[in-house]
Amino acid sequence: MSRPESFRELMLVEDPGFADVMRCVFGIREHETEAYLTLLDAPDSTAKELADELDRDRSNVSRSLSTLREKGLVERRRKLLDGGGHVYCYAAEPLPAVRERLHEELDAWTEFVHGRIDDFGGPE
């Protein structure tokens, strides 16, 4: 079976991993999840450093970082260089905060589904 991209697909996975849950809940792709997990171990990396670590093209990694920033999973910081100019460094949101967001999203979805179940067969 392919990687889960929806709650329905996630429910069919016998033993989903953390990355599977992240992809499903946050609506991100496998390479974006890999970038997030790599940044956990290498905070304050540049897009080039992350691309080298992931063995991917820098432009692809930059797109992944953009998506992760939009989802609130990565923070970008501007770092001044000694010789002048600047570079952007990226850091993953701390794992405890991401875990909490995952719990909140799944709880909200579960509450929504319970409401649908409770509404089924009601007055018409």
Rank of each mutant, 00 (worst) to 15 (best):
V74L: 07
L54K: 05
R78L: 15
R58N: 05
L68F: 05
E53L: 07
T67K: 06
R78Y: 03
E70Q: 08
Y90R: 00
R58P: 02
L106I: 15
V87Q: 13
N60F: 02
H86G: 10
S66A: 10
A108S: 10
V98K: 07
R77Q: 11
T110F: 13
P94F: 14
A92R: 01
N60G: 02
E70W: 05
H86D: 09
L65H: 02
H86T: 14
R63S: 07
Y88T: 09
C89G: 10
E100L: 12
H86Y: 15
P96A: 09
W109S: 03
R69L: 06
E53D: 04
V61R: 03
G83C: 02
L80E: 15
L68N: 05
D82Y: 14
E75I: 13
E104L: 14
G72L: 08
P96F: 05
R58Y: 04
W109Q: 05
D82N: 14
D55F: 01
R78S: 13
V74A: 04
R69T: 13
V87F: 06
L95V: 12
R78A: 13
D57M: 00
R99H: 01
R76Q: 04
L54P: 04
T67F: 02
G72M: 01
A91S: 15
R99N: 03
R101Y: 04
L106C: 14
A91D: 11
G84N: 04
D55L: 01
A97R: 06
G83V: 10
L102W: 09
P96I: 02
V87D: 10
R69G: 07
R56H: 09
E93T: 11
R56T: 08
D57I: 04
G84I: 14
D82K: 15
E53C: 10
N60C: 02
L81W: 04
E70C: 00
W109M: 00
A97D: 09
R63C: 02
E111C: 06
H103S: 12
E111Q: 09
L102D: 03
N60T: 08
N60L: 08
E70I: 02
L106T: 13
K79V: 14
K79T: 11
R69C: 09
E93V: 15
A91Q: 13
P94N: 15
A92L: 07
E105M: 10
D107E: 01
H103C: 06
R101K: 13
S59E: 07
S59G: 00
T110Q: 07
G85K: 12
Y90H: 01
R77H: 06
R78D: 11
E75L: 09
G85M: 11
L73W: 06
D82I: 10
T110D: 06
D82A: 15
R63P: 01
V74W: 05
R69A: 07
E70Y: 05
E75F: 09
L73C: 13
A92S: 07
D52P: 00
S64I: 03
L80D: 15
L106K: 09
V74R: 03
G83I: 12
T67Y: 02
K71T: 06
C89M: 12
Y88H: 12
A108Y: 04
R101S: 10
L65M: 06
